[in-house]
């Protein structure tokens, strides 16, 4: 088995995030799943969810360059044509029974939006809203496949600049999410504190646990 995939591009998204685009080879995955990615010389790997569509000819990963981090910094410095080691896919965080009539509510912090980007790109007629917790305006994901009208940003460290942005944390502005239909499916992805708190708030508001799905990122 050859686990090494060629880097096709590094695309900057704002100041802190970038997309690592690599060749897909014969990998098949379900939108929402993650991979283990490493660079040979560092002997370390980390898990990243794909953010490209299932049928794209490449694999994209949205990566936050962590201050003081090792792998996220080195991956960004890779040159086109260099190789990364890719194992996977792993995980159950995908749509088992996709139904275009259903409402899908995606709640993420930081790069926890990656699996949702993959879902949106894969299921073209998905009815969705994204609630995204970020620090700064430069963390906003500008992607042609994300319907900006359905993309709500919760910005903690800067003033907001557009009408779909809200100042503060997701959990502090939960009233906005509370008004979603009781029959919606909720997908939560990001840091464990946010996932845990939003889960509690959804349950306390009367949403059903069998319609809430969670994935934790560091």
């Amino acid at each position: 088995m050859n686990y090494y995939h060629k880097v096709l591009d590094i695309i900057n998204i704002g100041k802190a995030n970038y997309i690592l685009r690599i060749e897909k080879k014969n990998i098949k995955f379900s939108a929402g799943q993650f991979f283990s990615i490493g660079i040979s010389e560092t002997f370390i790997n980390r898990e990243y969810s794909a953010c490209s569509a299932e049928d794209d000819f490449f694999l994209d990963f949205l990566i936050r360059e962590v201050e003081g981090g090792i792998l996220s910094v080195k991956l960004k410095r890779l040159r086109i044509g260099e190789f990364v080691k890719v194992l996977g896919p792993y995980g159950n965080f995908y749509l088992k029974n996709f139904d275009k009539k259903e409402n899908y509510i995606f709640i993420a912090t930081g790069s926890g939006i990656s699996p949702f980007m993959s879902l949106i790109k894969t299921h073209k007629n998905l009815k969705y809203k994204i609630y995204h917790g970020i620090r700064k305006n430069t963390d906003i994901i500008e992607d042609k496949d994300i319907d900006q009208d359905n993309y709500f940003k919760f910005i903690t460290r800067e003033d907001v600049k557009d009408s779909n942005s809200i100042k503060g944390r997701i959990t502090d502005n939960f009233d906005i999410i509370k008004s979603e239909s009781q029959n919606s499916y909720f997908f939560l992805c990001g840091n464990s504190m946010m996932v845990s708190e939003v889960y509690d708030k959804l349950i306390n508001t009367g949403f059903r646990s069998n319609r809430i799905f969670t994935e934790v990122f560091f």
Binding site: S192, V195, S196, E197, Y199, S209, N210, V216
Partner: peptide
Amino acid sequence: NTSFKKIEK
């Protein structure tokens, strides 16, 4: 009572 949290603080 299957409704339980997977992620606790």
